[in-house]
């Protein structure tokens, strides 16, 4: 099995996020960066498939120089090799322009399954896997929490409103990982040592034959025109009362007569 995992480096979920000076992107000073949490599930799943069926796990990221940290983390978890698409012209775009670059890279490799996270926790778009599948002309099965591979096909489960869909697709295919798929392992100390010697290849758009006009901000189909802090919620009220019962009675009254939600 040739397994390719796309991963992104994102701000830690605890990070304070402030709007940057340009009013369109965040202020990146003082941010701690981590591998996107959903991508950990994708890496773990690829490693489990490799352990069961053999093959190679290649991790791939489009991102600035610091992205190598997230790639190294994946290598330390057990991935075999990494590809870092490190080109100024590939940055600042949307999922479409990122997928164009990744599709070009993947076309030059042998691949049975591409794994991505179901969503990044930075721009929260959840688009890349589906777009990538379409650009590669292969099926994409999104937001899965169970995966089995057999006889050149995959069977995956997607939680949907009121149930679970069991979906079958032929390989090669793209899946996007949801929490519940597995429990990602931690990188062990020996793993971290070994990772230093694993291949990590940096590529430019020219190496992939991608025209800069198709990548990054130039190739994006959507653009952020304005970024603002979240709207303030009006200050709430603390329900007073001598006893819990008294507070409960007041709350019931307010929800019914003031907020009119019950």
């Amino acid at each position: 099995m040739e397994l390719i995992v796309c991963l992104k480096q994102v701000p830690d979920t605890e990070a304070m996020i402030k709007v940057g000076a340009n009013g369109k992107s965040i202020d990146e000073a003082e941010i701690k960066w981590v591998m996107n949490p959903y991508d950990e599930f994708a890496v773990e799943e690829a490693l489990k498939i490799k352990e069961a069926q053999g093959g190679t796990v290649t991790v791939m990221a489009v991102g600035p120089a610091k992205t190598v940290e997230a790639l190294r983390t994946a290598l330390a978890m057990g991935a075999d090799q990494a590809v870092h698409i490190d080109d100024e012209a590939a940055l600042g775009g949307d999922e479409y322009s990122a997928a164009v670059v990744m599709a070009a890279a993947i076309k030059g490799m042998s691949c049975d399954l591409v794994l991505t996270g179901q969503r990044t926790v930075d721009d929260d778009r959840g688009q890349l896997g589906g777009i990538l599948g379409e650009l590669l002309g292969i099926p994409s099965v999104s937001v899965i929490n169970k995966l089995d591979l057999a006889d050149g096909a995959l069977i995956a489960e997607r939680p949907v409103e009121g149930g679970t869909l069991v979906i079958k697709a032929s390989l090669p295919a793209v899946i996007t990982a949801q929490k519940g798929l597995n429990e990602p392992r931690y990188a062990s100390l020996p793993g971290i040592m070994k990772a230093k010697k694993k291949p990590l290849e940096a590529k430019k758009l020219a190496d992939l034959g991608v025209d800069p006009s198709q990548a990054g901000a130039a190739g994006a189909l959507v653009e952020v025109v304005k970024m603002t802090p979240p709207p303030e919620r009006a200050a709430g009220q603390v329900i007073d009362g001598e006893t819990a019962a008294e507070k409960a009675a007041k709350l019931a009254d307010l929800l019914h007569n003031e907020a009119k939600v019950v």
Binding site: T13, M16, D122, L221, V222, V225, M227, P231
Partner: peptide, 16 residues
Amino acid sequence: RPMYAGKVFVEEMAKS
């Protein structure tokens, strides 16, 4: 739409 888990909001427009 919210981004960064609602820590910021953005306005987006399409070029298409």
